[in-house]
């Protein structure tokens, strides 16, 4: 295993020890951290590996939240609802990807963004199934006290993050990952050497969807109530891009670090500058990207090269 992957696994292991140190507030933050990490790791597959800037994360998230919400309402157990949502997103995104990923660059970005709008409108109008703009109440899972609940959802999200990280690491080292890197660098040349680019791009899009949709399912059960403007929030599409850029495009370790740093910034800034927190947060992000254009993972490399030069 490469050193970056090892570091990724160790970091995920450390996150699992959070309940030893913190109370309900820390667990809420930890659950958010795991969710953000799932977003960033997933986005990295299509945006980082294949080089297609997708704004569809919010669409997958909302889809998963509503699919699971409806299934939970129908009496399915949480784990099954979450898996079904993930698999459904995998298949739907794979099929959609074949069409959407014919577009490149800005055109693809805008098409993926409109996917969010389309799904939100669908959910808004399917009142019988989803409650429309009124939102959807989700029956309580287990529910034996605040602490037990917090612990349960933290570990549910953590397990999903682990599954995402393992999958993404596997992709990065596989024939699929190699092919996505070819597509990112030169799509014409990639098809000319016998790579089925449509298939590979669809797989990347599908993989970037399934874990996010499952996270949406866990989120829905966690917060008990969802409405379209909450789960189809465009910010869910933008944040993973920012996180990945902060951490380092194309690197799973970077995606995770970026998610943690982003959440930290969001929380600190929100507490200290409640009136103007989005402005301050935006400013901080711009500064980070200006001074660290290749993300946090480049820090370590830069230091290594710096040392080598002086020896």
């Amino acid at each position: 295993m490469s050193r970056a992957n090892l570091a990724l696994i160790v970091l995920i292991g450390l996150i699992a020890t959070l309940p030893l140190f913190g109370g309900a507030y820390a667990l809420r933050l930890g659950t958010m951290a795991c969710m953000y990490a799932i977003f960033a790791l997933s986005w990295n597959v299509v945006g980082g590996f294949a080089g297609y800037p997708s704004f569809a994360t919010a669409a997958f998230f909302g889809f998963g939240a509503y699919a699971s919400g409806v299934l939970l309402g129908a009496g399915l157990p949480l784990w099954l609802a979450v898996i079904v949502s993930g698999v459904a997103a995998l298949i739907a995104a794979g099929a959609l990807g074949a069409a959407l990923l014919r577009l490149r660059g800005h055109y693809f970005a805008i098409a993926s963004l409109s996917l969010v709008e389309v799904l939100r409108e669908l959910v808004n109008n399917a009142t019988d199934l989803t409650g429309g703009g009124m939102g959807l109440n989700i029956p309580l899972a287990a529910g034996s006290g605040i602490m037990a609940d917090a612990l349960f959802f933290f570990y549910a999200m953590w397990i999903l993050m682990l599954a995402t990280a393992l999958t993404v690491m596997w992709v990065a080292g596989s024939k699929l990952g190699f092919g996505l890197a070819c597509i990112r660098q030169n799509e014409t040349a990639a098809s000319m050497v016998g790579l089925n680019t449509t298939l590979y791009k669809s797989l990347a899009f599908a993989l970037s969807a399934c874990f996010v949709a499952s996270a949406g399912g866990i989120y829905a059960a966690w917060v008990h109530y969802i409405d379209p403007s909450d789960v189809f929030d465009i910010l869910y599409s933008v944040k993973p891009i920012v996180m990945t850029l902060i951490g380092g495009l194309g690197s799973p370790l970077g995606a995770l670090c970026g998610a943690l740093v982003y959440l930290g910034l969001e929380e600190v800034v929100w507490r200290n500058y409640i009136q103007i927190h989005t402005g301050v947060l935006g400013l901080l992000i711009v500064m980070l990207l200006l001074f660290l254009p290749h993300g946090l993972v480049s820090l370590r490399l830069a230091r290594l090269f710096g040392k080598a030069k002086h020896v």
């Binding site: 070819c182 990639a190 050497v193 790579l195």
Partner: peptide, 9 residues
């Protein structure tokens, strides 16, 4: 070159 071998063969 590996990419060419990998995807065509």
């Amino acid at each position: 070159v590996a990419a060419a071998a990998l995807f065509s063969q």
